[in-house]
Design a binder for these strands. Structure first.
Lengths: 185, 185
DNA sequence: CCTACCGATCGGTAGG
DNA sequence: CCTACCGATCGGTAGG
């Protein structure tokens, strides 16, 4: 009911629609209708459609970072920590309101300034991943932890959004397990 | 110069632009301009913008299938065959004119009939992959070859298009090697 | 394949 | 946050 809540409603609807149909194919009227507003009203909360995309991506990344931090709290064993991180990432990606990694693909529609801002937050999301991979390599559970490994891992994770079906044969836990098994020796 | 050549020019330009900017953000005027035509002329070759997307995806998939078949010809050892297939897939994806796996993402803009047609061709592309994975599992070079493994493998491969840079630190051969090393034990 | 054009849609705004 | 609206752009077409 508060203004912040209506703004969040718009962000959430925009994120969902941008992921589903793409930025260009989603109209500001679609977004307004999704939250029960008239066509001009989103512009009371956001300066432009691009600003709505930028804010949705940043909000999704922040939420993903938070969930990741909460998930690893107190998990010291690197193998267990990796498993927990994989599970948390898949949950954000496949169950969350805002599928940040897929939204980031739409940032090609933004200008260089906004893209740089998003890249900086995305980089901070990667840090705990590189850290746990380095620990695993040191412990001999990984052949090596050079950057390509992290990039390939994110490929496995993010691409699931292209084939995962909530009513399909594979649960989130099963997918998370398959990813970890493939990575660890 | 022939009519088929102009049609192919349009397909190639459309594929490149659809991957770069997305289907909805690419105008038929962009495509026309890319091949030196006026705005109305693409519609002499294709009934609609959607038909242009459908044809570009199918052409890209056919090309990818062909390259894959050529690459594995005479390669009997499953380990070597997997490596060759990975390399061929990455070449189509990162060097080819038509990056089919990324174009397929844009098929969300097509109707159910066209999507089903595309899904059928895409499925036939997957067959040799599942076959080589099954052989590798039988030979003990893979823990198992259940479907998630193939899907995760395609995730590693296709997601490279999000971070690969031709002038970057990693060559196609290095990436291909990293993927194979991660998969095989 | 070009010229000339149309109807529809869209992002965004003024004023309340 | 709504009403009423505008200018620009876009997919597509008729006629040659």
């Amino acid at each position: 009911m508060s203004e912040a809540s209506r703004r969040d409603d718009l962000l959430s609807a925009a994120g969902r629609l941008f992921v589903e149909k793409g930025f260009a194919a989603t109209t500001t009227r679609d977004i307004a209708e999704a939250v029960g507003m008239r066509s001009g009203s989103p512009f009371y909360h956001f300066r432009s459609k691009h600003e709505l995309l930028r804010a949705a991506i940043l909000a999704g990344l922040e939420q993903g970072c938070q969930r990741l931090v909460e998930a690893v709290e107190g998990v010291d064993d690197p193998v267990q920590r990796l498993r927990v991180m994989i599970r948390a990432h898949l949950a954000s990606l496949l169950e969350g309101d805002c599928q940040a990694p897929m939204l980031i693909l739409e940032s090609r529609s933004l200008d260089a300034v906004a893209r740089a801002e998003i890249a900086a937050v995305a980089a901070s999301y990667q840090e705990p991943w590189q850290a746990v991979l380095d620990e695993l390599a040191a412990a001999g559970r990984l052949r090596n932890s050079a950057p390509p490994v992290r990039l390939l891992l994110f490929g496995m994770l993010n691409w699931t959004s292209q084939w995962y079906r909530p009513d399909g044969a594979l649960s989130l836990d099963e997918i998370a397990g398959a990813v970890a098994d493939l990575l660890l020796r």
